[in-house]
Design a protein around this nucleic acid. Structure first.
Lengths: 152, 152
DNA sequence: ATAGGTGTTATAATAAAAATTACAACTAAT
DNA sequence: ATTAGTTGTAATTTTTATTATAACACCTAT
């Protein structure tokens, strides 16, 4: 990979926290599920925390969602991990002496902005709950959602 | 990774061809406006040609639009230069032994697909004509759209 | 105290994109 | 026919956003 997968990873982490509340929730355990390293998980979780999506305490492996699953949208998560980075990128390297070049990019910007808005509207309508529901549909009634400590 | 600006560059090239029909339309001249190199311009133009958006002849610097400006959508251009590459990317490196990991990604895919569809619908509603119109609004009645040979 | 965690910074490695090079093939002019 | 200029394309290098990794101060709980 080298496309940004931070959004996907963040969703993964949030789902993991939601689904495995009573299991091992160390950054190490989460990292194994995402197949990355603990430090990267902590970096993403740090952003999720700053955006008020999760709560954590240093030295204590008990992260939890700060809001209900249906109160966390994909847009919230995107903003948390990607900031205001747009999905479409202008070429800002155009020749400044060429009026066509510069102004076509400015003209494009307006259209990109509109598209970005529609993407964000769409993202705001998908919640973590929706994703977890889709997950449950895919895995059947319980899938593989129980962790080692979750057995009753 | 670098951000891809192929879509923006392709729009730039198409606009340049549309606006400066009677000027020097060598890949060299276009490259100067985009501030890139001729080979890269030719690479993008090759894709635009394969998608039927422009016509060119080898050895002859007279590219032209193959369709009317309002018959070329941003989606057409996107497909030409980016193929079916989506804007949001799953993390496909998840641990295959972790049911949560794999299946959350599959679950996410469905939602990403929906978002992609809405992006494409939005893109299909913007045409090269719209962008050129925006350009004219930005530059006033004639902006800097005349090339050296265009003076009457 | 000790063990095991988090939070954060700094640096290295990876990968997708753009930049560049090179050249065969074509066009038009002479 | 030769020449100058151009396109089309493949191969290679450079750039840069992202992920991976290492290191460590600081916190929690036993």
């Amino acid at each position: 990979m080298k496309y940004s997968t931070k959004l996907s990873d963040a969703v993964h982490i949030l789902s993991f926290i939601a689904l495995k509340k009573d299991s091992d929730l160390t950054s190490q355990a989460i990292a194994e599920s995402v197949k990355t390293n603990p430090a990267f998980v902590r970096q993403i979780m740090s952003k999720l925390k700053k955006s008020g999506l999760i709560t954590t305490v240093r030295g204590h492996a008990r992260p939890s969602l700060a809001r209900a699953e249906d109160e966390i949208s994909l847009l919230d998560i995107y903003r948390a991990v990607e900031g205001d980075k747009p999905l479409l990128h202008l070429d800002t390297h155009t020749n400044p002496e060429c009026g066509v070049g510069v102004n076509i990019q400015y003209a494009l910007q307006d259209h990109y902005d509109k598209i970005q808005q529609s993407i964000e509207k769409e993202m705001s309508q998908v919640t973590l709950k929706d994703i977890i529901d889709s997950f449950h549909k895919k895995t059947g009634s319980d899938g593989d959602i129980r962790g080692p400590k979750a057995s009753v």
